[in-house]
Design a binder for these strands. Structure first.
Length: 999
DNA sequence: GTCCGACCGTA
DNA sequence: TTACGGTCGGACG
């Protein structure tokens, strides 16, 4: 900075208070966010940046900065503990604007300056002194009298609200003393708003008069006895020390250490799109237009920015944590914690307030609002490279009683994954009992440097040895008094279990979201961060790369890994704060704690055990299938008169419906002729040879590619077993899903397919036990719709489909034709699926009118079912979700769609969900109870798989007779004692060497 | 390389 | 007519 330059220093904190009161209340239109002070601030900045010359300042700035108070605690509190102690909390509507003004500053591409322990005024004093020494002129944008002591021939002030410059004569005119005597004047008068004591009875007029007479404060105090007025004389003598203290308090520090050097305040050009994005976000249309014109930017093309709102810790009212069953214990002090600096440091977690809305809903709302706006500060994340630091973090986690936890590994498959490191997130209560700061750290353990080493390089230096870190981590993860919070806990649980750690006391944010929001979008971390935190976390592929050039996580640079991993733990802990109170507010805590969380270790154990598949059987089957398919291919090509890709529905359609001229059945939604099995079956039934061959070929190639060829690839290299992955939060209804490989769709319907089941075998000395619920969904339907005939039929143990047929068609159960029973069975399934005449007609290959008659007849016989269906649809329309008998919710937000087919689809799904979902809840309960029941019976039987209504166990041969009754009993009584079903549950169980024979 | 549609295996 | 996941072909870049 040099002679001729001109520095503008904006007192950001001062401005906001003034603008807030001076400008009428103004809210963002879309959501009521108060923005009056921000609007004034933005208009003022824009004016100063573009035409300061036309204001009373009369010059254009070359340097510019906006200065803020960091917090209410400064060095002055060390001088006088009552300093600013009577400050009241700012108005509610002002609070979010503190943060917004900082964002505005950055959007204007201006330095945003603050420093812990100092007031904005001290920073302004220091910059002003330095600029003046460099020969520059300074304008302080403020009208605060506390800053008038800084005015000199080269330093002036500017009241932007009144467009009035304040120079030396202005100070004298207003206060009766020149700027250099303002300190003494303030020392005498004191300041009630800042709690600066001063001398009682001395106001500005008297002070000015005394200073005129005695010159300065020290002289006055030395000659106080000469003062004629008795009261004044006594007051000054009695309060001399107070006056000296006050002088210290009001004297600005012109030598504050600076983080941003003076020269970096040089004014840069405006970033039009960035500024417009901010202005659009706040809906400042006039200014948006002006800025667009001045910067030659197409405002239409700019998306509004995401503008997080900071809630300053200082700005919090008297919130108190009145406790929450499983919430974090309020630990007021954390000895070693050093809160991070910067924006994230001011993020404070709101707890339940006595004063405001002290209900579960109020807390849930407050948390959601707070975290929707709390900014992320990656600079506050740290890497832990030594045991001592790790110990400190673990101690802090213990103090807090709550820690976000995440593992980083080399694979999505928890059974194959190798641990690379882990991250922790902690909410501190260090100096703010009203809230908490979240900080996060990554602990790299096995990161490698692959530089110039074909073997993959050695370990990166300065990582805590794996064993040492794990022994410390074990203490934390197995400590029941510390709640661990993870996203998709089953994964981390299994990875840690493989390292000899059995986690205790945990929550899973993914499962919380699933309980709250099944049907409302995904439950992965990225979705949840977007939905609840308004934040997009660093993408995994941005860290590891993608495709051919991708790295496993252990080759990721540790700084990058820290940014990614620490953020994940941070996000997880924030999500917990948002979601946990919502469970309580919506009455879903039971569902989460009984049907979700306890299933995590159960499924982890099942996945860890795996199941043996006989690779020889699969290999032999693959050969047979290949031969069969090859023979069919020859036939197909011969019949078609040419070779083509049979597996291509497009090419196949051209052959069948083009070249061969077969009548096309239905079309797919893209307009292609459908070549589905049902179409081909119809053609085959009409006497055509080719379609039959296609159907057969499809079956063989399907079995080969999906099962016999693929399954051996899933055999684990060490355990030699296949470990599926069960997803807990994948379905809308509450069912599990299975993948990698999917063991819930192993063939059974055809003889060819069943051969694949013979490859799933028990290990030597054991047998597989398959136990499945009989007609569980129809039983659930009989329960929820309370249908007397169905209840009676299940109580009597009669054939339910035959009973249905008998009721509908008046045919005796004895000697019933199989076609009649088949139709009744299709209707029963149709009911569960939310029947339509169209669907039933399709299923039974009958006319739609005939299917409609069946349905009508069915409802006449079972009016309770129609009531159930109508009531369920009405409930779903009203609430947007339906419930299972255990209170699990499945959401159907599109049930109010104006699209009739979409609406109808959602109605059918919402009829089905309570039935399918209640059955899913029942088997979940059975699974949770199974491990302790087997243990109590001293059985070593191990649960391996779940297939919706079936559980598969591996049981020692000598144990089978004792194990089967235990298994059956747990399953049949699974609803108890939470619920007493109106129909009995029935379970069939068999033991055999392979799955085909056991089922 | 990544995505989507068609198809098909299970309950 | 419900709920899933896997494989393939084909189109996109």
């Amino acid at each position: 900075m040099k002679n001729g330059d001109h520095l503008f220093l904006v007192d950001g904190s001062g401005f906001i208070f003034r603008a807030f009161h001076a400008i009428p209340p103004l809210n963002r239109k879309s959501d009521g966010l108060p923005v009056n002070a921000v609007a004034g601030f933005c208009n003022m900045l824009w004016k100063l940046l573009t035409d300061a010359r036309d204001t009373s300042v009369g010059v254009t700035p070359t340097h510019f900065a906006v200065i803020f108070d960091y917090s209410s605690k400064t060095f002055r509190n060390g001088l006088y503990d009552q300093y600013k102690a009577n400050r009241t909390a700012p108005p509610e509507d002002l609070i979010p604007q503190f943060g917004l003004i900082r964002h505005a500053t950055r959007a204007f591409n201006l330095p945003c300056i603050e420093k812990e322990g100092y007031e904005a005024d001290d920073l302004i004093a220091t910059y002003a002194r330095l600029a003046e020494e460099a020969g520059a002129d300074v304008t302080i944008i403020s009208s605060d009298k506390d800053l008038m002591q800084l005015v000199t021939p080269k330093v002036s002030m500017y009241d932007s609200m009144k467009d009035k410059q304040i120079t030396i004569p202005d100070v004298i005119e207003k206060w009766g003393v020149p700027p250099e005597k303002m300190i003494d004047l303030q020392a005498m008068t004191g300041d009630s708003t800042d709690n600066v004591p001063g001398i009682p009875g001395i106001g500005p007029k008297t002070a000015a008069q005394l200073l005129e007479e005695y010159g300065d404060l020290d002289t006055l105090l030395g000659r106080a006895g000469e003062i004629k007025q008795q009261k004044r004389r006594e007051a000054i003598i009695a309060n001399a020390d107070m006056a000296r203290l006050s002088r210290k308090l009001v004297t600005l520090d012109k030598h504050t250490p600076l983080d941003v050097p003076l020269d970096e305040l040089r004014l840069d050009s405006q970033d039009g799109p960035r500024l417009i994005a901010f202005l659009k976000a706040l809906e400042f249309t006039t200014l948006t237009r002006r800025v667009a014109a001045a910067t030659d930017t197409d405002a239409e093309a700019v998306e509004p920015a995401y503008v997080p709102v900071e809630w300053g810790a200082q700005a919090h009212g008297p919130d108190l944590d009145v406790g929450e069953a499983a919430g974090p214990p309020p630990t007021p002090q954390s000895s070693t914690a050093t809160p991070p600096r910067g924006d994230a440091a001011r993020a404070a977690v709101p707890f339940l307030s006595r004063g405001r809305d002290a209900t579960p809903e109020g807390l849930a709302r407050a948390r959601a609002e707070f975290f929707a706006k709390a900014p992320f500060d990656h600079s506050s994340y740290v890497t832990i490279r030594d045991p001592a630091t790790l110990d400190r973090w673990i101690a802090d986690a213990r103090d807090a009683g709550l820690v976000g936890f995440d593992t980083e590994t080399t694979s999505l498959d928890a059974m194959q994954a190798e641990l690379c490191g882990f991250s922790l997130a902690i909410a501190d209560y260090a100096d703010d009992p009203l809230g908490s700061r979240i900080r996060a750290a990554y602990v790299p353990l096995t990161h490698k440097n692959g530089v110039g080493d074909l073997l993959g390089g050695g370990l990166v230096e300065n990582q805590i040895p794996l064993r040492e870190a794990l022994s410390r981590l074990k203490e934390l993860l197995e400590d029941p008094s510390v709640l661990k919070v993870a996203q998709n806990l089953k994964y981390d649980y299994l990875v840690m279990k493989r390292h000899g750690i059995t986690m205790q006391s945990y929550d899973d944010t993914m499962l919380m979201s699933y309980v709250i929001d099944a049907g409302n979008g995904a439950h992965g971390m990225d979705s949840l961060a977007e939905r609840w935190l308004g934040h997009t976390p660093i993408a995994y592929k941005d860290v590891t790369g993608t495709g051919r050039s991708s790295l496993t996580f252990d080759f990721v640079d540790i700084d990058r890994a820290t940014a990614y991993a620490a953020e994940d733990a941070d996000v997880t802990l924030r999500l917990w704060h948002v979601l946990k109170p919502q469970l309580a507010a919506k009455g879903l805590t039971r569902v989460y704690e009984r049907l979700e969380r306890p299933l995590v270790p159960v499924l982890a154990h099942m996945e860890e055990r795996g199941i043996t598949v006989d690779r020889q059987i699969l290999s032999r089957l693959s050969g047979e299938l290949a031969q069969g398919a090859a023979a069919l291919e020859d036939e197909i090509y011969r019949l078609a008169g040419e070779t083509f890709t049979i597996g291509s529905p497009k090419q196949l359609g051209d052959i069948l419906f083009g070249k061969m001229g077969f009548p096309g059945g239905s079309k797919t939604k893209t307009g292609q002729w459908s070549t589905s099995a049902s179409v081909l079956e119809d053609l085959a039934a009409a006497g055509h040879e080719l379609p039959r061959k296609i159907v057969d070929w499809r079956q063989l190639t399907k079995l080969k590619s999906t099962y016999t060829d693929a399954l051996p690839g899933f055999v684990h290299p060490e355990t030699k077993r296949v470990h599926t992955c069960f997803a807990l939060a994948a379905t809308t209804t509450g069912r599990l899903s299975s993948s990698d490989p999917n063991l819930q769709n192993i063939p059974i319907r055809t003889a060819e397919g069943r051969k694949i089941r013979t490859a799933f075998v028990a290990s030597p000395g054991n047998k597989l036990v398959s136990a499945d619920y009989s007609q569980i969904e129809l039983r659930v339907l009989a329960h929820v719709a309370d249908i007397p005939q169905l209840r009676q039929a299940f109580a009597d143990g009669v054939d339910i489909h035959a009973m249905t047929a008998s009721e509908m068609f008046g045919v005796p159960v004895e000697g019933m034709p199989s076609e009649i029973r088949r139709r009744a069975k299709a209707i029963n399934f149709g009911i569960i699926y939310g029947i339509s005449a169209f669907g039933l007609a399709n299923q039974l290959s009958i006319e739609r009118s005939e299917a409609g008659d069946y349905i009508k007849k069915y409802f006449e016989r079972f009016p309770g079912i129609r009531d159930y269906m109508e009531n369920t649809k009405a409930f779903a329309r009203e609430h947007g979700y339906v419930e299972t008998i255990f209170g699990r919710r499945a959401h159907y937000p599109d049930i109010r769609s104006s699209n009739p087919s979409m609406r109808a689809f959602n109605e059918r799904a919402s009829i089905n969900a309570p039935i399918q979902g209640s059955a899913a809840d029942i088997i979940r309960r059975a699974m949770v109870k199974m491990e302790p029941a087997l243990e109590a019976a001293k059985l070593s039987a191990r649960m391996l798989l779940q297939v919706h209504d079936e559980l598969i166990f591996e049981v020692e041969e000598g144990e089978i007779e004792r194990a089967v009754p235990v298994i059956v009993s747990v399953m049949e009584n699974a609803a108890m004692p939470a619920l007493s079903m109106k129909v009995p549950l029935k379970v069939d169980a068999r033991a055999a060497h392979n799955w085909d024979e056991a089922h």
